[in-house]
Design a protein around this nucleic acid. Structure first.
Lengths: 230, 230
DNA sequence: AGACAAAAGTGAATCAACGTCAACTTTGAG
DNA sequence: CTCAAAGTTGACGTTGATTCACTTTTGTCT
């Protein structure tokens, strides 16, 4: 809520003359997200209340609703944020990878590295007093997964990947990576490289033997995102 | 709430003289679970309230709390129920499977078959007006996963599986199966055999190449990946 | 600088759902 | 038939969600 030095710096750096109003808006939003991260981690998604979150920010309860409509929406924003950080990395790996194998290897490395570096954020999803693991399928997430599937489709077209069921393959890799990621994060010493090696070996060892799909669901309008009115 | 004919039948068959009291207790519990299944499917986990559930049963609100302490606990019971149905099948497959490969193949088949048959229950976990997917890590679930890991450990001991990181391997298979299962269920025509083939090929193709525990490929520079030219 | 309108923040008030409990009903044992 | 125990009921006090009239802050125009 206080204009920070960084704001001024950032502002200058970006050449954007942000007004104070916009700056506090950004700051408040960030403060809420940050607080939410902490509360979710402490109490678990189910147990946290909107008030727990705003209490940590020092803002008034009403202010919360200027930024988010519910705790669900905050959570969604957190997930989106994570996905938005990962996607460009995956895209970069995609670009520098010439074959499907390269891509899988590089992408898995990137994913586990990222996870290890942003541990805090992702612990949100599992942590707690007790047991409810929550995953949110945000637009950003769906798009991210879909992008991966697209890459696979491309590789099928250009021949580095046999014509397998790309939805299943994407789901396999994603499911495997996420579940392994959870375990990795829970370990005492997190070793993303080892996790990546493991996952890579499993996926790459097997993909040649996959049943070839005459059956692949033909991604009707693959890319068109449904506008989720929200 | 009404003593059904089946009750009498079951009672006789089992030789258990259930009193009316016990019968209604069972019936009420079942009614609540059944109602919950429906409500969760209709509204999604997040949006449903305890009262939505009991309303469907015709019982009074207070009665709910004689059976469960919260909606979380009902959900947990539903998950447990699913897991309790699957576990014996997996155990059976385990017994009749002589090698790791057999086990994986048979277990995956069993899992996808089951999922297809009990579609309704598992849609609970994903379904809704909107986007929050909830997974619950119940004791039963953890135990089920752990059991799978045990099997893998055994196979390592008896040599049909190299000494890989069994937690990661279990997590991989579980994550892959669950994520694929979600997709399978969402498809228009559910084909568990195809899904099982796919998953089996992927897992079995790759497990020989997995890094052996303790011997994890010594990523000299964990970060730099082999990137042949480019 | 001063005045004003728009934007954003505030917290008391309202509302919805939770979970409890005293009173009531049903069951089963004697 | 009687009675205590088990179980059900729904009204009630709580807690947290959400709204909104009011205040404060900011940016703009003179």
């Amino acid at each position: 809520m206080k204009d920070s030095v960084e704001d001024a710096v950032k502002e200058r750096a970006e050449g954007k003359p942000l007004g104070k109003r916009e700056r506090t808006k950004i700051n408040n939003r960030e403060a809420i997200l940050q607080a939410a991260r902490g509360v979710f981690a402490d109490l678990g998604y189910g147990a946290t209340t909107v008030r727990d979150i705003i209490r940590r920010t020092g803002l008034a309860s009403g202010t919360f609703y200027n930024y988010f409509r519910s705790k669900e929406e905050v959570f969604e924003a957190l997930m989106d944020e994570g996905m938005r950080r990962i996607r460009p990395r995956l895209r970069a790996e995609r670009i520098r990878s010439r074959t499907f194998e390269d891509f899988i290897r590089n992408a898995l490395h990137a994913y586990f590295e990222y996870l290890a570096s942003d541990r805090e954020t992702f612990e949100v999803m599992r942590r707690n007093p007790n047991t409810v693991r929550v995953r949110m399928e945000t637009a950003e997430m769906i798009a991210g997964f879909e992008e991966i599937r697209e890459y696979m489709e491309e590789d099928i077209r250009n021949g580095t990947l046999p014509p397998v069921d790309s939805e299943y393959l994407m789901a396999s890799v994603v499911g495997l990576a996420m579940e392994m990621g959870d375990r990795m994060i829970a370990r005492d010493n997190v070793d993303p490289a080892a996790a990546a090696e493991f996952a890579t070996a499993l996926v790459l060892g097997g993909f040649h033997n996959l049943p070839v799909a005459g059956t692949a669901p033909a991604a009707s309008g693959a890319n068109d995102r449904k506008d989720d009115g929200k």
